[in-house]
């Protein structure tokens, strides 16, 4: 059986909020290492991969592999019933029909309990090879969100070009064009504001801004975001979560003219 207790419901609420625009139904794969999720959007352009390691929970118990097929709209409805600071416990039997969510207030004696009916989801699973990326950019997640939002006002697509000069986000639209260039930067007062660029070879790729803007819904989960790029492979956008957990988005590039 599964029993996983999160100190703050907020973490799961934010993760689910970040992916509901991309994915409707998905399996939460539970085993002794934690709770994982991999799902593609309907058009198979973007992929979400989440890992909440067992260390992120206290306690965490899962004796065998359990797949919880959950409709994310249903999960969102139930998670709205939890206060952000509530303690959240997920429970399921070994061959479950439902997943049980318990919300406890640390300050009062309130205890809320909900069951969500599970679904059989036959999900296509993709193998993601370990990739040595040509360029990795770590930057404030709010900055990436702002650039994406600003350029989306002008265009559907963004070109991300990484050279030793820095990283340039640029777009061309009906009303004109725009670009934002970032260089490696160390902020002495606040390292959250640092921009670091690791480059082994120059990269230039084009992506859909609509998808990037969806990924940026995860900005509340982490002050930092890491973009990893190589020519002609999907972009990896990664938000680090507590206890070495992560929320990753992959986005297939636009190709050719």
């Amino acid at each position: 059986m599964l029993e996983a207790r999160l100190e703050q419901a907020n973490l799961l609420k934010k993760v689910v909020d970040s992916i509901t625009n991309l994915v409707q139904d998905c399996n939460f794969d539970c085993n002794d290492s934690g709770i994982a999720l991999q799902a593609m959007d309907n058009s198979h352009v973007a992929l979400v991969a989440m890992m909440l390691r067992s260390d992120a929970f206290s306690p965490f118990r899962c004796d065998r592999n359990i797949a919880l097929g959950i409709n994310l709209t249903s999960l969102t409805k139930v998670l709205r019933c939890a206060q952000n600071e509530d303690i959240l416990t997920l429970k399921a039997e070994d061959a479950p029909d439902v997943v049980n969510l318990v919300f406890e207030s640390a300050e009062s004696d309130r205890l809320s309990e909900y069951d969500i009916k599970l679904m059989d989801i036959d999900q296509e699973h993709l193998g993601i090879p370990d990739t040595e990326y040509a360029a990795s950019i770590t930057m404030p997640s709010a900055e990436f969100q702002r650039i994406t939002r600003d350029l989306l006002a002008l265009s559907e697509s963004v070109s991300i070009e990484c050279t030793k000069e820095g990283v340039k986000f640029s777009c061309q639209g009906d009303i004109g064009s725009g670009s934002v260039t970032l260089r490696s930067h160390t902020n002495v007062d606040n390292e959250d504001r640092n921009v670091s660029i690791d480059l082994s070879e120059p990269v230039s790729l084009m992506f859909s801004l609509k998808y990037l803007s969806n990924f940026c819904k995860a900005s509340g989960l982490s002050s930092r975001v890491k973009l990893s790029l190589s020519n002609e492979v999907p972009l990896l956008v990664e938000y680090a979560l507590p206890s070495n957990s992560f929320l990753r988005f992959y986005l297939a590039p636009k190709i050719g003219d």
Binding site: A46, P234, A252, P253, D257
Partner: peptide, 14 residues
């Protein structure tokens, strides 16, 4: 305009 590629072209189904 650039053509949107899909993930299957890059990642293998397992």
């Amino acid at each position: 305009t650039a053509q949107q590629s899909r993930l299957e072209g890059f990642f293998k189904a397992v």
